[in-house]
Amino acid sequence: MKRTVFAYPYVVWMLIFILAPMLMIGYYAFTSEGAFTMENVVGALTNEMYMQVLLRSVWIALKATVICLLLGYPIAYLLSNMKKSTASLLSVLFIVPMWMNFLLRTYAWQVLLSPSGLLNGLLEVLGLPTQQFLYTESAIMLGTVYNFLPFMILPIYTVLSKMDRSLIEASHDLGANSVTTFLKVIFPLSIPGVISGITMVFIPAITTFAISRLLGGGKFMLYGDLIENQFITLGMDAWGSGSALSFILLVLVLISMAIMRKAERDAGEEGGGKLW
């Protein structure tokens, strides 16, 4: 009884801020002047330009996720092998930037990368030709990886640091070298962390819109930008198509989460089977 009382505020919160907006998206996506219609969703799915933007978003999010994994796993691995005190100090350093609003951090990159910015100033001092860093697809990639890398490192680090060290010792005792130990013992055991890292990077990356606008100069429209544009500049008339686009993105996110969940289960069974 007591516990459920404490849950009420959360339930109310969920109803107002999660369920109600989703229902509204569903309503606007599937109605036109009050009557049911598939027009908005079909229109959004058959519009060649919208699909092109969706593909670009998926592609950028996938690339950013892979880069985050390639950078984040070694960092998490190194952290987990350090002394506890050093590791916790370093992991705090990874979290500290997240105390600042991510828009501010993205603006900071704008200043660093701009033609008259710090990076080009440095190139000039070294006598090298200046480069156009800002307003390129690479700048968007940099901003995405920078913003979401901690979400990859932390879950992997958590799994790795909680791993039973005796398993690694056992692997060495049984004659496996470090590479084999890593591939056969450490990596399979860290899969849950990797999967939650991938989920936590891919989903915000595919839905982002501010990064592409600030660092891409409005030249590389992502699906998030497209949705924002429908609501902010096109107004009431575009709520139907804006909601349809949001709905499609929502379905895409749910599908990718289901895939991750399945991968995690499969890995769990497999790893478990081999371990014991």
């Binding site: 033609p115 409005g218 030249k219």
Partner: peptide, 18 residues
Amino acid sequence: VLAYLGDSIKESMINGDA
């Protein structure tokens, strides 16, 4: 085009970005 911007055009032009 280097970028499609709003008010930030002013500052970028003053900095000589384009």
